[in-house]
């Protein structure tokens, strides 16, 4: 009830607790613009879907947000603090990468993978995180023995161990079968609604974004839409513009 009310207020554009605030973000790779003058915010409880064609700058945006790429213009604030000033914000951010690259012979159990961290991880929190993604029964299996979909669920659990306020997911369902995708969406939905964790998620899957995200940011070097998900998906002009841009980018890349 409270969350519905909060979302109602939030959808009106009133963001009372900002988790992320990005202003005039621009990134240049050897003279080629990867991101151009991007500004948007993520409030507490937001589920923001970032959509855009390949090469639109989604991963660059995430790399900047996570402090992996530091050569940018503009400001990125997490919890009202510029990320250039401190990296402490990362302890409250859970990151789930694109399709995980796990060496099949890496000798680490799922429990050990969750315990690897900046701070020592409480075993109880590890178990709780695994239960949230329904992987607790496999906790002592080697990470390399799992399917890609299961590995990705482990990485969500890993992102949850330190009780983050926001999850950053970079095209997390690429290469995952339908069954695991559905589980993945269910987990994300529950984390957002029950645990009130803000989520920023990049994806090519417009149907999934429409189903899960309450806000959408449409990116193609510049931000050409940011707002309520329903507004984007009910706007035929906008959808047409998006599909034309995607097609142009697709042709450009081939």
């Amino acid at each position: 009830m409270l969350l519905t009310f909060y979302r109602f207020i939030n959808n009106l554009g009133v963001n009372f607790i900002m988790i992320v605030d990005i202003k005039k973000l621009s990134v240049d790779y050897s003279g080629i613009k990867a991101l151009d003058d991007i500004s948007f915010g993520i409030a507490k409880g937001d589920f923001l879907g970032i959509i855009g064609p390949n090469g639109a700058g989604k991963s660059t945006l995430f790399r900047c947000m996570l402090g992996l790429h530091t050569q940018y213009d503009g400001t990125i604030k997490f919890f009202d603090q510029d990320i250039r000033d401190s990296r402490k914000y990362l302890s409250q951010v859970g990151f789930v990468p694109q399709k995980p690259v796990v060496d099949r012979n890496f000798p680490a159990t799922i429990r050990e993978v969750l315990s690897m961290s900046q701070n020592s991880s409480d075993p109880k929190k590890v178990d709780e995180a695994l239960q949230k993604v329904w992987m607790h029964e496999l906790a002592d299996r080697r990470i390399g023995d799992l399917s890609v979909g299961q590995q990705q669920r482990v990485f969500i659990a890993k992102a949850l161990v330190n009780s983050p306020k926001i999850l950053v997911l970079d095209e997390p369902i690429t290469g995952i079968d339908q069954y695991n995708q559905d589980l993945f969406f269910q987990i994300l939905g529950e984390l957002n609604t029950k645990e009130k964790i803000s989520i920023i998620w990049s994806s090519h899957d417009l149907d999934a974004v429409e189903r899960l995200a309450n806000k959408v940011a449409c990116l193609n070097q510049t931000l050409f839409f940011h707002g309520v998900s329903k507004d984007f998906f009910s706007d035929d002009e906008m959808l047409k513009k998006y599909s034309e841009t995607s097609m142009q980018m697709h042709m450009h890349h081939h």
Binding site: R87, L90, S91, F95, P97, F106, A108, E112, Q118, F155
Partner: peptide
Amino acid sequence: YKKLLYSTFSEEQAKASGI
């Protein structure tokens, strides 16, 4: 060892966690 192992396991994720 936990930080060393994390950096060994996934450089990108370790960096993104502040290591």
